[in-house]
């Protein structure tokens, strides 16, 4: 088999990358992992078997960095879209370029599409195949994003998944699930919370969480009721 590089791998045909309801389970002959990814998986699984590396420890090391690396970039994009209608327009028309305006660019030429939450639609992003993720705006994906249960259930039971994240989406709101590919990454533009009319871009950006930009959270008002704050803070 030809060796694929990570940048050019095509794992599914681009015409159905966002049709979450119609996953072919038939054959598709494009390799789903590039050569480099295969080598990394090979090493890791061998080291785990030999007891030299604990997957949880690896995740902890990665988590240590990922929480810090990227999400702030995406938050700036969101805050600017909330405050600058022209920027919002550009962002919706060509997110890759609009995001690059702020200086955030991927190395591998993948495209980003921004999907907008409103009173009728809630968007959720997943990568069912591996862990494609909009690096330039969100940094490294959190561990749960890469987990098999999230990847499978985000498609089959999105409302159930969101409930586990503490998010109850009313039945009349449609949930759209976007399946990322190597070529197309999605960024959710969350709804601007009430009570933020007086905030400037920087203060708004501070409210925007990574989870809201993946679609497993929403952006909370700066002064949530006591109960909501307690629910958020305790972890699980």
């Amino acid at each position: 088999m030809a060796v694929k590089t990570c940048g050019s791998i095509a794992r599914m045909s681009s015409d159905h990358h966002h049709h979450h309801h119609h996953h072919d389970s038939g054959s598709h002959d494009e390799p789903r992992l590039c050569d480099t990814e295969l080598r990394v998986r090979a090493l890791e699984s061998l080291l785990v078997e030999k007891g030299l590396v604990d997957p949880a420890a690896l995740d902890a090391i990665i988590e240590n960095y990922e929480t810090r690396v990227g999400p702030r970039n995406g938050a700036r994009v969101v805050a600017k879209a909330w405050t600058d209608p022209q920027y919002r327009q550009r962002l919706l028309e060509d997110a890759t370029s609009a995001i690059a305006e702020l200086g955030f660019q991927g190395r591998q030429g993948e495209h980003t599409q921004v999907v907008v939450n409103d009173e009728r639609v809630h968007n959720l992003v997943v990568c069912t195949l591996c862990s494609c993720y909009p690096w330039p705006t969100l940094g490294l994906p959190p561990t749960w994003y890469k987990s098999a249960p999230y990847r499978a259930r985000a498609v089959s039971d999105p409302r159930g998944v969101l409930k586990e994240f503490g998010l109850r989406i009313p039945d009349e709101v449609e949930i759209r699930v976007w399946d990322s590919t190597a070529e197309m990454r999605y960024l959710v533009l969350p709804r601007r919370p009430a009570g933020t009319e007086d905030l400037d871009e920087e203060a708004l950006a501070a409210l925007v969480t990574r989870d809201a930009m993946i679609g497993v959270g929403i952006v909370e008002s700066p002064n949530p009721p006591e109960a909501a704050r307690r629910g958020q803070g305790d972890g699980r």
């Binding site: 990570c6 480099t36 990814e37 990394v40 090493l43 890791e44 080291l47 030299l52 590396v53 604990d54 420890a57 690896l58 995740d59 090391i61 990665i62 960095y65 990922e66 810090r68 690396v69 991927g106 190395r107 591998q108 591996c130 862990s131 993720y133 690096w135 490294l140 994906p141 890469k146």
Partner: peptide
């Protein structure tokens, strides 16, 4: 200034393996 930067998950994975070993 804060630490290493990664462009893809496998890079972070490779990085973490070395740190762990």
């Amino acid at each position: 200034d804060d630490g290493p930067l990664f462009q893809a998950p496998w890079e972070a994975q490779a990085f973490a393996m070395v740190v762990a070993l």
